[in-house]
């Protein structure tokens, strides 16, 4: 194997196509969600443990900072879900043609944002 492979990581010069953005955001949201698991389990535990803890969580989720974090987690989860479904379809050989792939990439991106805003209002 070649020992030193070409290396280019100038983030200001790299121009990703939309599929690249969906993909790297899929990885970033996945990593973020993975690291957030213990925190999410903790919040879930509080919401179920007692009436008082449930009220605390509710109030915190409705506060300014809390609702921002709530939106971030929701968007991360939903972007990961939609981008993941798109990747599953690509794995099955569906939608690989360039214009189609770009359309589904924009769709996954938009669906994540839209669903996060909708659910953020409901929850």
């Amino acid at each position: 194997m070649q020992k030193s492979r070409p290396y280019f990581l100038d983030l200001t010069a790299i121009r990703l196509p939309i599929g690249g953005w969906v993909s790297i955001l899929h990885r970033l949201t996945g990593a973020g969600l993975s690291l957030a698991v213990p925190i999410l389990v903790y919040v879930w535990m509080l919401s179920l443990r007692s009436e008082a803890d449930h009220a605390t969580v509710r109030a915190w989720l409705d506060s300014g900072f809390g609702s921002l974090l709530k939106l971030a987690v929701l968007w991360g989860l939903l972007h990961h879900l939609f981008a993941g479904l798109r990747h599953l379809l690509l794995d099955l050989g569906w939608g690989k043609e360039k214009t189609c792939a770009r359309k589904t990439a924009w769709t996954a991106m938009g669906a994540g944002v839209a669903a996060a805003v909708l659910l953020g209002v409901v929850l």
Binding site: R27, G30, A31, L33, S34, V37
Partner: peptide, 8 residues
């Protein structure tokens, strides 16, 4: 999540 982090 574990498999994803393994990949990363």
């Amino acid at each position: 999540a574990w498999i994803g982090m393994r990949e990363i």
